[in-house]
Design a protein around this nucleic acid. Structure first.
Length: 265
DNA sequence: GTCCAGGGTAAGC
DNA sequence: GCTTACCATGGA
């Protein structure tokens, strides 16, 4: 067990932040699955316990949770006259922008369109159970691009994907071929990366921005879903100026998303 | 049963 | 370029 004192980190908020779909409560803590690795996380105030080897922590999970970034700097940059974001950052100040597996994130957000977060989780979990490698009792890795690319649409239909089945299949084939996305795209500019994602069938501006933000860590990306649009309409007169947060508006987007959903419960 | 969900595509202007 | 109908399904 690795113990760290970490400010601006709340595993419960992260698990419920809508950017990831495979971090869930588990006997007093949380269990995260990513890239075939399993991590149990326990939190007591600012003391976080990571149940994994030091090698996995340093080579994977530390980056996954973006632990080398000081989120207080982001929060401090919020203008004091912005009441909404000030409250939002206070409420969800433990959120971090994760570095998630690229293929998994791409497929998950292709699935996300017109689905609620619980429904997305169900579909993603179904994909893992049906086609992912079993890595522990009742725990499955997210399937590889090659595996999903080889699935028939009939096989995929078991997973509650609905009309998104061909989207998932085509994106998997494109990813498996390696001539597009994934690995290698990290040296591209934000605009080049967005263009590449938008070429995929079933990927529009919103999904592309989510993948940019939550997998490629392009934190300037500002995904606008129904909740963000609602927030901007209600609290910013229909126009939110992302230039105030030049280069990291995506962080603010997460505070906004997490907070506005809490207000509607 | 009804409503809505971290939207996108294709067709029509 | 910009609207609009339609998309399949699960969870609340």
């Amino acid at each position: 067990m690795i113990k760290k004192i970490i400010k601006n980190f709340d595993i419960a908020q992260i698990a419920d932040s809508g950017q990831c779909f495979r971090i869930n409560p588990c006997d007093g803590g949380y269990i995260a699955i990513a890239d075939g690795k399993i991590l149990r996380v326990y939190q007591d105030g600012e003391t976080i316990s990571f149940d994994c080897s030091m090698t996995d922590f340093e080579s994977y999970w530390s980056n996954y949770f973006d632990l080398n970034t000081d989120y207080e700097l982001y929060i401090k940059s919020i203008p004091s006259d912005d009441d909404f974001l000030t409250s939002a950052a206070k409420y969800g100040g433990g959120i971090r922008i994760l570095n998630q597996p690229k293929f998994e994130t791409l497929i998950s957000f292709i699935i996300s369109q017109r689905k609620s977060i619980p429904a997305i989780k169900s579909a993603v979990e179904s994909l893992c159970r049906n086609f992912g490698e079993q890595i522990d009792d009742e725990l499955y890795a997210f399937p590889s691009a090659q595996t999903l690319a080889s699935c028939s649409e009939d096989e995929l239909s078991k997973c509650g994907l609905g009309y998104r089945i061909p989207y998932v299949k085509k994106a998997s084939i494109a990813s498996a071929e390696g001539n597009s996305l994934l690995e290698g795209f990290e040296k591209l500019t934000d605009e080049e990366l967005t263009d590449g994602l938008l070429k995929l069938h079933g990927v529009g501006v919103k999904v592309a921005n989510c993948v940019m933000l939550f997998a490629y860590h392009r934190i300037a990306a500002f995904p606008e879903d129904v909740w963000i649009k609602r927030t901007v309409d209600t609290y910013y007169g229909g126009n939110f100026d992302t230039k105030i947060y030049d280069g990291y508006a995506g962080v603010m987007q997460q505070y906004m998303f997490y907070y506005i959903r809490s207000l509607n419960r």
